[in-house]
Design a binder for these strands. Structure first.
Length: 839
RNA sequence: GCCCGAGUGGCGGAACUGGUAUACGCGCACGACUUAAAAUCGUGUCUCGCAAGGGAUGUGGGUUCGAUUCCCACCUCGGGCACCA
């Protein structure tokens, strides 16, 4: 018997597959005669970090590889592509540290990754490999950006952004959750800066609603919905009342006539800026409002201060409060245990439109300027935050009856509106290693897009990749590159020096795979029509409100331009759990517990590693790595090999014997010349095989790879015990194992090939079907319970009726022992499961 | 604080729709093979008990003939959101 040599076998088949390009997906235009039904499976393309491939990559790649391979065997034309999401900070930081070019570092890293991935035998279509840092790729990223610009959805705005003082970079809200930089963990600051923005808020409602159209896990949907933060409410205006002193400066001439009745109300029509518009989801509590609160950044505050300088008695206090707020970091402002702060605007009151009561106006930083209207009506009786604030500053808390929300809104002239938490996407970075924003600043013409034929705007060579303290991109130092001509008037102009965030290239990469070499458009329409949407996309939960949301947004935008045929990019999304280090802690360089897959492949083989990673636990849950446990998967693979070797030897012997016309040989592997005992064993094995085919087929669809493998382990144990494994049955077993362990199954399958016959990969053989009739048991063992406790077991025929089963149960010796002398109250029978006798 | 998961042997984990809890794997123990070791194969492995039998799926209650599964309360862990009006 030949020893199982994983290295030799794996290398051999990887070479064959590569040379024959067997996993290349067929395009409709190339293969226009009867194209097969398609299946587009996708994994999140890796960031080629200097650390090399992580065992976590292998987990999700293997899962989708199994699904892709099964689909091919089911007759689908499968697209399972791969590429590199290669722009990003770690490469740039490495470049800063070592002075090496990011492009060179990227090339080196992708080479490492490519080699590692190929060693594991993934069935990627390598002919479509893409790299987001390739000018031929980012040409189209820039092109799509310009479409946003042309539609007014990419705009430059001075706004308060999340600034990471350590990375010296502006961040999107999604990257600065809780005031913490996602990259380095330092506290972010708010900084006023002119930034490129993408108007994702224009799509907020559709991004929320269209989640109904796709097959995403509930946790993904709810997390996105949460982030988009849709809420329906009312906008209600509160008029202002200024104290009497205002009248001295006002239009009233008769000072003697100041009475309560002619106090000036700022009128909606004449001075609309002097109104406080609040947003509330609880208009029904309007009668309980005891004060209103403005965000410190609310624009009304300045207007009030300038217009009513004399009436407002605490201007200095107000100004100080606003200054203090500005100085606070986002983290300080939102931290949980922080007590509420605020200051009243003295001398001005608001009027509750429901009952015309005068109520004080406060400024407090618990109100956020960028949500709703930046102002709230406070109902301390019904809202915990308002109550805390009211208690601290001795503001009244009153109990008033609730009213109908819609009616009161209408009555006070308010409006029913929908608000979102989602903010526009801060899209510029002051960094080197990203796609240059393809716009030109012309003194005369303003912002002018680079013309299509001049795309891509390539990243220039720079001496230093370091971000600058002024907050400008390193690109701004290359005057040769910056100074250019205006595409419109040919006059003097300067390039934009900001680059795009690393989420840009990944927002549309799945479209480029479809037509990765296209020179005239980002992807051919016919091909898009055939391949989109992605049928199954697996990725990490950490991208739910980043990449997954962003790419849905880009896709919808392209859909509106009629550039893609589907509303949503991904039909089905699943999420893998993380692989943690031994003991359940995070795998990290600093802890020194990172597992290098190369070593595992070398020692145990790729097939074993794949089986192990699929077997280690439920796919969607986190699981701790255990090098000790890998041996179990290796033993399983070796068992498969042993059985295979035995069968193949017998099979070849038989062929030789037949050739020699020796009849009725006693070789027991082919279902002929068997004893009765052997034949019945063969039958029960066949039954088990069909059960296993069913289990594996269904488990793969549900990503329950661990239980699929478990059932195949049980089957191999039985096969090894059995002296008579039918050759065809064994082939079927190899076929269902093939997606999991592609090398060993290909080798064994190929060994069964009749000499001189053409090589036919197991991975394109037909996925085995199970025979429902064969699976059905004739006899089953059921449990006999007495008063709910299992006391015995009996064998019954599946066709036995209830009476017959009861009879059998009551005649059982053990049962008799228990029931003798007792009165049988009731017998419950669950078909083919159990029988419960109540005494 | 709110939302979503999860809690089962020494460990990773099985258990369909409420129907024989602990499949499969690791580890461990013993045995076979071997001069020996490794590898492999076999047997055993929740717990108390000599046994008959009893008790166990985070805790406490409930529904049910029957609950890991359904309901209520609580505890612990993981993840998300977090002054969103």
């Amino acid at each position: 018997m030949k020893e199982y040599n994983h290295t030799k076998i794996e290398k051999k088949w990887q070479k064959v597959w590569e040379e024959k390009k067997i996993y290349k997906a067929k395009d409709p235009s190339i293969d226009s005669r009867q194209i097969k039904k398609k299946f587009y499976s996708l994994i999140e393309f890796p960031y080629p970090s200097g650390d090399g491939l992580h065992v976590g990559h292998i987990r999700s790649n293997t899962a989708m590889d199994i699904i892709s391979r099964k689909r091919r065997m089911e007759g689908y034309n499968v697209l399972y592509p791969i590429g590199w999401d290669a722009f990003g900070l770690p490469t740039e930081n490495y470049a800063i540290k070592t002075g090496k070019k990011p492009s060179v570092v990227t090339k080196k890293n992708t080479n490492t990754f490519r080699g590692q991935l190929k060693e594991i035998g993934f069935s990627f279509d390598w002919t479509r490999e893409i790299n987001t840092t390739d000018p031929e790729y980012y040409k189209w990223t820039q092109w799509i950006f310009l479409q946003f610009f042309k539609k007014g959805l990419a705009y430059k705005a001075k706004s308060s952004i999340n600034w990471c003082p350590s990375c010296k970079i502006g961040l999107a809200n999604e990257e600065a959750v809780g005031g913490i930089c996602e990259r380095c963990g330092s506290a972010t600051e708010k900084k006023e800066k002119e930034q490129w923005m993408l108007a994702i808020t224009k799509y907020a409602d559709r991004l929320d609603k269209d989640l109904d159209l796709v097959d995403f896990p509930e946790r993904v949907k709810s997390q996105q919905r949460n982030w988009i933060g849709k809420s329906e409410g009312s906008e209600i205006e509160f008029k202002l009342k200024i104290t009497e002193q205002q009248l001295f400066h006002g239009s009233h001439s008769n000072l003697n006539m100041i009475t309560e009745s002619n106090i000036a109300y700022a009128e909606k029509s004449s001075t609309p800026q002097f109104l406080i518009k609040v947003f509330t989801t609880r208009a029904d509590t309007l009668f309980g409002v005891t004060y209103v609160v403005l965000a410190p950044e609310h624009e009304l505050i300045n207007k009030l201060i300038t217009n009513y300088e004399l009436q407002i008695t605490n201007i200095e206090e107000i100004k100080k409060y606003i200054e203090d707020t500005k100085r606070k970091s986002e983290l300080e402002r939102t931290s949980e245990d922080k007590t509420k702060t605020g200051v009243e605007i003295k001398g001005v009151k608001a009027i509750n439109p429901a009952n015309n009561e005068e109520i004080p106006i406060w400024i407090a930083d618990y109100v956020l300027v960028n949500y709703g209207t930046g102002a709230v009506m406070a109902v301390p009786q019904h809202d915990a935050r308002d109550r805390e604030f009211a208690e601290k500053f001795n503001l009244p808390i009153i109990d008033k009856p609730l009213v109908n929300k819609d009616e009161i809104t209408k009555k006070v002239g308010g409006e029913i509106v929908t608000k979102f938490k989602l903010r526009d996407w801060v899209f510029s970075r002051q960094r080197y290693w990203g796609e240059p924003i393809p716009l030109i600043n012309c003194e005369k013409c303003g912002l002018v897009p680079v013309v299509d034929k001049d795309l891509p705007v390539k990243l220039p060579e720079v001496r230093s990749y370091k971000p600058t303290d002024t907050g400008e991109s390193p690109l701004s130092a290359i005057s040769k590159w910056v100074n250019t001509k205006c595409p419109k008037c040919k006059g003097k102009a300067k390039r934009e020096t900001d680059t795009m965030p690393n989420w840009a290239g990944s927002s549309w990469y799945y479209l480029r795979y479809i037509d990765s070499k296209n020179k005239i458009s980002f992807s051919d329409k016919k091909k898009l029509k055939y391949w989109t949407p992605v049928d199954w996309y697996n990725g990490g939960m950490e991208h739910t409100t980043l990449h997954l949301l962003y790419s849905r947004f880009w896709h919808k935008f392209l859909y509106d331009l009629k550039l893609v045929p589907t509303v949503e990019p991904y039909q089905k999304r699943t999420s893998h759990g993380m692989i943690l280090g031994e003991g359940g802690v995070k795998m990290s360089k600093s802890l020194g517990n990172v597992i290098n897959p190369d070593n595992i492949v070398k020692t145990y083989g790729a097939d074993t590693l794949r089986i192990y990673e699929m077997f280690m636990g439920p796919f969607e849950e986190s699981v701790a790595w255990s090098t000790e446990s890998i041996i179990g998967s290796r033993r399983f693979i070796e068992k498969v090999w042993r059985i295979g070797e035995k069968i193949i030897t017998n099979y070849k012997l038989r062929i030789t014997n037949e050739k020699n016309k020796i009849r009725n040989s006693n070789i027991s592997c082919v279902g002929q010349g068997l004893t009765q005992e052997e034949s019945s064993a063969s039958q029960s094995l066949e039954k088990l095989l069909h059960k296993t085919i069913k289990k594996v087929s269904e488990d793969i669809e549900n990503m329950r790879f661990n239980t699929a493998i478990s059932s195949m382990m049980i089957l191999t144990t039985e096969m090894e015990k059995s002296q008579s494994v039918n050759l065809e049955d064994y082939k079927k077993f190899l076929q269902i194992l093939a997606p999991f362990a592609p090398h060993i199954t290909e080798e064994l399958y190929d060994k069964l090939r009749i000499k001189n016959k053409k090589y036919e990969s197991i991975h394109f053989s037909e996925w085995p079907k199970w025979d429902e009739n064969l699976i059905k048991d004739q006899e089953v063992k059921i449990a006999v319970q007495i008063n709910g406790k299992v006391r015995s077991e009996i064998m019954i025929d599946v066709n036995d009726n209830e009476e017959k089963v009861k009879e059998k149960a009551l005649l059982n010796e053990t049962v008799l022992k228990y029931i003798s002398g007792s009165y049988i109250k009731k017998i419950i029978y669950i078909k083919n499961r159990l029988i419960n006798i109540l005494i």
